[in-house]
Design a protein around this nucleic acid. Structure first.
Lengths: 342, 342
DNA sequence: CTGAAAGCGCTTACAG
DNA sequence: CTGAAAGCGCTTACAG
């Protein structure tokens, strides 16, 4: 079955005016080579006739779809960090529009990731490039490396830095917030997160560790507390025998869960234990008390990722490596000052 | 600047095999008119040469973009119901893919909605139809009605039912859960929600009211409690002088806020007051106690919306009116039985 | 300033 | 079963 949309084309406008469609094209695109008078007449008639530009024809001509695929692994599309990724995705599409591009989201299912299946949009040339939003397996990265389209990693990176990535400055963010805890008198500080799950969690741990080192605080192995299995699924948090006075959590959601657990066990947050998070997402303000945390600058990260992608799509493909974007500490109510006299 | 993607085309395959590109097209699309042997040879060579189908050419030919615009009003893209809409959006894109279609999301900003600006994807013929996800202003609906593309409303409807809509059965959902409260001995039951904000909130109220009527419980005007201003922004909930024993909230997030408020004021939920929600979203399980609520069947709603859209795009455009999809009660811990002997 | 010709990669309708 | 021709709506490169 053929479906004809009752669309006005440049040719229709040209015929009505007795000019060629080349001239109409030039006028509508504000290009050189049409008199001002004619250009105005064309634009006006286009308006009257309800002309709408046909992007598909432009795409055909240029060999570009003017779409960018946004790939989000399934495990980030649900509960955990859902709000973060949705916000990021929204901002990506909005930013792309400024360049005449559109985002097509694709949730990468766990099965497709394991089976190393590329998304359909790749095989159908539906997109000109890919932004990967959220850590993917290293096997999958190896497959992706081979495809002949620009790609950018957003919010994670890979050991092989052949693919440009934009990440939040996890290391210095965790470093800063741990410093902040120390400045409030804390010295028994635990870290909550599975060190082998994502590079973000790892880097945040290292920032935390750097702060300890600088303050000559010995890292207590029982103060590294697991929060999820290797698939990213949350597990029950096990508190150490000897309680710390502060917890640095790898993300707000885990901080939220921890605060609830502590409260159930009869601890007062922040009086008995300080708890800080990371991300400043919905969990930071849902928690009672509201969480002191590190705000990730999504807007800036997305802006950079999109700019990079547009450059690549336009063929200006200089490798860029890893770019990290600074966050900032948001002070709320989950940390108390335990120094003498405070 | 011209960017040439180093793509293999059907013509390249045809030349290598000494056949015409028409034959290659037929073979690759599994159409009549090619011998099995040749078809196999063509498919194999296509594979070897790394051929990828060019959707843009197909689009050009058919006058269709094979994209559907998913329009989400800005106010639903943030805090409130964010997780619901993101889940719905994800499921829409996945379902569309089964029909060879792709979703392009567009957040409708408050300004564009007020100024009655149509999304850019419309003017660029970037999509073949629109799914509107989340209530839009009636002025905007009036503008939309005029555009010559199929449209479907998802999760809301308009008084003029010229545009087909798929909604959750708000009325019977609220009716069922209010009945449930009554069955547990409650008779002083309040409703929380701004009756003038969205049709969902209104219909849920009416379902609640129907249950009261059926049980000969008089509707107490002070038991209709406002939760948000007309822009959808949450306001502080004001409790009535005389406390009810149960609250029917128009959504889980409001139920969550209410539970927290009640707890702060020293009430025990569910012992002193029962609180039920609607949606079964993230707030239902975040709340302590976890909320008894009505689960909305997003999957089914999306399935129907997408099917309807595909039919329309294919020209089989019978008006469908409003379709409502049944939800179900999820019983958790926020309701206690206050009947004698329980 | 204006336009005829060619082409982007595919598919349709028709002829052989 | 196979393919030449035309066309989808635009743009580019070139000629006048």
């Amino acid at each position: 079955m053929r479906i004809v949309k009752s669309n006005v084309t440049m040719k229709d406008i040209a015929e009505r005016l007795g000019v060629s469609s080349v001239t109409v094209s030039k006028a509508l695109n504000d290009k050189e080579g049409v008199s001002e008078a004619l250009k105005e007449k064309i634009k006006q008639l286009a308006d009257e006739m309800g002309y709408r530009y046909n992007t598909v024809a432009k795409s055909m001509k240029h060999g570009l779809s003017y779409n960018i695929g946004i790939i989000i692994p399934e495990r980030f599309s649900g509960g955990i960090s859902q709000s973060f990724y949705f916000r990021a995705y929204q901002y990506i599409t909005t930013t792309l529009e400024n360049y005449g591009y559109y985002g097509i989201m694709n949730i990468l299912s766990n099965e497709d990731e394991d089976a190393l299946n590329l998304p359909r949009i790749y095989f159908e040339n539906k997109v000109d490039g890919f932004i990967f939003l959220g850590q993917i397996s290293s096997d999958y990265i190896n497959v992706i490396k081979e495809i002949d389209m620009p790609k950018v990693f957003l919010d994670f990176y890979d050991e092989h830095d052949e693919i440009d990535s934009i990440i939040t400055d996890n290391f210095y963010g965790a470093y800063d917030i741990t410093n902040y805890l120390v400045s409030k008198g804390h010295r028994n500080i635990a870290y909550v997160g599975n060190l082998y799950s994502t590079s973000s969690i790892q880097d945040r741990f290292l920032g935390y560790y750097k702060s300890l080192l600088e303050h000559h605080i010995v890292l207590n192995q029982s103060y590294i507390i697991n929060d999820r299995d290797d698939k990213g699924k949350f597990i029950e948090i096990e508190l150490p025998e000897q309680m710390p006075t502060a917890f640095v959590c790898n993300c707000d959601q885990v901080a939220h869960n921890l605060v609830n657990k502590l409260k159930r066990l009869g601890y007062n947050v922040p009086k008995d234990c300080a708890v800080v998070g990371f991300d400043n997402d919905i969990y930071a303000t849902i928690t009672d008390p509201q969480l002191t945390t590190v705000e990730v600058d999504i807007e800036e990260m997305v802006t950079q990722a999109v700019k990079l992608m547009i450059k690549k799509v336009q063929g200006k493909n200089k490798p860029n490596g890893r770019t990290s974007v600074k966050g900032r500490i948001i002070k709320r109510d989950s940390v108390s000052d335990i120094r003498q006299g405070h």
